[in-house]
Design a protein around this nucleic acid. Structure first.
Lengths: 63, 63
DNA sequence: GCCTAAAGTAAAGTATACTTTACTTAATGA
DNA sequence: TCATTAAGTAAAGTATACTTTACTTTAGGC
């Protein structure tokens, strides 16, 4: 899966650490998801959707 | 997380085994997700959304 | 009551998500 | 050049998703 996290983060001028804190996960987790190393769990995807006020399908995409 | 799988399945008159086959997962996995024992991975949630032609957020809900 | 199909459940194993610690690299500015 | 901040990465450990095998329970039709 691919995602728009880097862009969404940039729009808000957030660091990976900022996002990690907002999500209550580690910075490495944000980095790994952003780089496509693994997919987030469904609950984490929901947290992201809530945070960015956007549907999960507008943040993540099947490749 | 809670979900509407049982209803979506019933609307189509599908068994858990039918759904499992469509998703390419085990029947036990469908049962466990349906009963709320664990959440699906994000890729599996996408597969469900595609199958039921519905947004992930209309199938799964945070409780 | 019996048979069958579907659902429920449990144990043990594998795969993947996520953590912590720690080190490296890139970019920017004093 | 040096210091700082953000990003990238890696190893080892824990948690959770998912599989396989196998058994039990439930409900309906005969």
């Amino acid at each position: 899966m691919k995602n728009r996290l880097k862009v969404l983060r940039a729009e808000r001028d957030w660091t990976q650490a900022d996002l990690a804190q907002a999500l209550e996960v580690s910075r490495q987790t944000v980095n790994a998801i952003e780089k496509g190393k693994f997919d987030p769990s469904l609950p984490l995807a929901f947290k992201l959707a809530r945070l960015f006020k956007a549907p999960i399908e507008s943040i993540f995409f099947e490749d």
